[in-house]
């Protein structure tokens, strides 16, 4: 089986400061990789480098495209990368506002990616939008409401629907449950788990919350000060941490 994503030696510096360095891993179809670390660990920098939002100073991000096979997205042309971002890739932002058009209705938000790849039948687009609202547990009657009228959890779920409607193969998530109430988080995580499995998605999830990775991620990468200090199966890294920092992280989590 070919890897879906091959990350090779990604490095991003801010002057003399290291954003992230020497990050390499392969991601296979259907795998979910969690990246954890505390503030300043470099995890968001890494995610943005992988997703094409930041240009890394070194390294390659090779994605197995449908049309042309494995291609380095770092050196890809911008139109091609933007197209990838609308079709095969998805990015779920921490704040739904960054990932939605707040002045466009829920249906329009979900339909935008469809229209961007050429769908031209209003009825079909609307039906798909309503279908997706159902899948993220938003009532169909809200299809014409603006996201400004939604709660935080609903906005986040709408963002997920907007991203997944074109059936991407790789989803990047930046603190998807950050800032949400605990019960809302639980619902969202459950939803994500279900969708990841149903759609056979691969995902890279950045979070500081170990409970989130325990639930969603198959593999886990621990970052500290821009370096990857440990990587392995999620349950192994959390139950049998090898690195001093990982041990500290795991032992610091309060048990409820």
């Amino acid at each position: 089986m070919k890897p879906l994503l091959q990350v090779k030696g990604i490095e991003k510096r801010y002057g003399a400061r290291i954003g992230c360095t020497e990050v390499s891993f392969d991601l296979y179809p259907g795998e979910v990789m969690g990246i954890v670390g505390e503030s300043g660990s470099g995890k968001s920098t890494l995610l943005n480098c992988l997703a094409g939002h930041l240009e890394p100073d070194a390294g390659q991000v090779v994605f197995d495209t449908r049309a042309d096979g494995p291609m380095d997205t770092v050196t890809m042309s911008e139109p091609a990368r933007r197209m990838l971002g609308r079709t095969d890739w998805a990015f779920v932002h921490q704040h739904a506002r960054d990932g939605l058009r707040m002045s466009v209705s829920a249906g329009g938000n979900i339909g935008e990616r469809l229209m961007a790849v050429g769908d031209r039948h209003y009825g079909d687009i609307r039906d798909k939008a309503i279908d997706w609202l159902g899948r993220v547990e938003i009532e169909a009657t809200r299809v014409d409401d603006r996201p400004t009228a939604f709660s935080g959890g609903m906005q986040q779920r709408l963002q997920i629907a907007r991203n997944l409607v074109t059936g991407p193969r790789l989803v990047f998530m930046d603190e998807p449950t950050g800032g949400l109430d605990v019960s809302v988080q639980a619902r969202l995580l459950d939803l994500l788990r279900g969708l990841v499995r149903e759609m056979g998605l691969s995902a890279i999830i950045v979070t500081h919350d170990l409970a989130v990775v325990r639930l969603l991620a198959d593999r886990l990468m621990v970052m500290k000060s821009g370096h990857v200090v440990e990587v392995g199966l999620t349950d192994q890294v959390l139950d049998d941490p090898q690195h001093a920092y990982t041990q500290l992280l795991v032992s610091s989590v309060l048990q409820v």
């Binding site: 329009g108 339909g111 935008e112 990616r113 229209m115 961007a116 790849v117 031209r120 209003y122 609307r126």
Partner: peptide, 9 residues
Amino acid sequence: GLMHVKLYE
């Protein structure tokens, strides 16, 4: 795509 979003709205 955004142009059609306007028409959709």
